[in-house]
């Protein structure tokens, strides 16, 4: 079942598109589910399909095509680290290493307490702030150093 909050958000999104193009809101709908639950399960996809009046398979195709959807639990805070060229040149390898040291996990893994997950990202379009990661696809943290990473983790630990 989609929560009332998600339905309200989807309805708002639907107003952007012609009335007979409900499918245009599928990307947003998947994003709202992920924002609420942290990841998207097959059942959520069926619910979205039903609400938007589109085939379940078509929702599945979208969810699997776009990289930022979590198709399995990725922790309360998913840190997506860009490793593309500008970030690589500026030390994204060190970022990953430091996160590994601090959290004990590598790419694609989640800490045992379910608090943090790390994903590899592609270019975020913010290359002048390399190296960087995003938190839950919402906040970009750039020009990372080990000290800055420690500060960010300390803040998140408190929450």
């Amino acid at each position: 079942m989609l929560s009332q909050q998600i339905i309200t958000l989807i309805d708002k999104e639907l107003k952007k598109y012609p009335a007979d193009q409900r499918q245009s809101a599928v990307m947003a709908a998947l994003r709202f589910v992920q924002d609420e639950k942290g990841w998207i399960a097959p059942d959520d996809m069926s619910d979205i399909a039903e609400y938007l009046g589109m085939p379940q398979m078509a929702v599945f195709e979208v969810a699997t095509f776009y990289h930022m959807y979590n198709l399995k639990p990725m922790g309360q805070y998913t840190l997506t680290v860009c490793t593309n060229l500008s970030c690589q040149l500026c030390g994204s390898g060190d970022t990953l290493e430091h996160l590994h040291k601090r959290l004990g996990i590598g790419l694609g893994e989640v800490t045992a307490n379910g608090k943090y997950g790390i994903r590899e990202g592609e270019c975020m379009g913010a290359c002048v702030d390399a190296p960087m990661f995003s938190i839950n696809n919402k906040q970009l943290c750039g020009r990372l150093t080990n000290e800055k990473i420690d500060q960010i983790l300390a803040e998140l630990d408190k929450q």
């Binding site: 952007k16 095509f65 959807y69």
Partner: peptide, 10 residues
Amino acid sequence: LHNHMGYGAY
């Protein structure tokens, strides 16, 4: 004008 958000596909 409306904004549509992508979700990770170059």
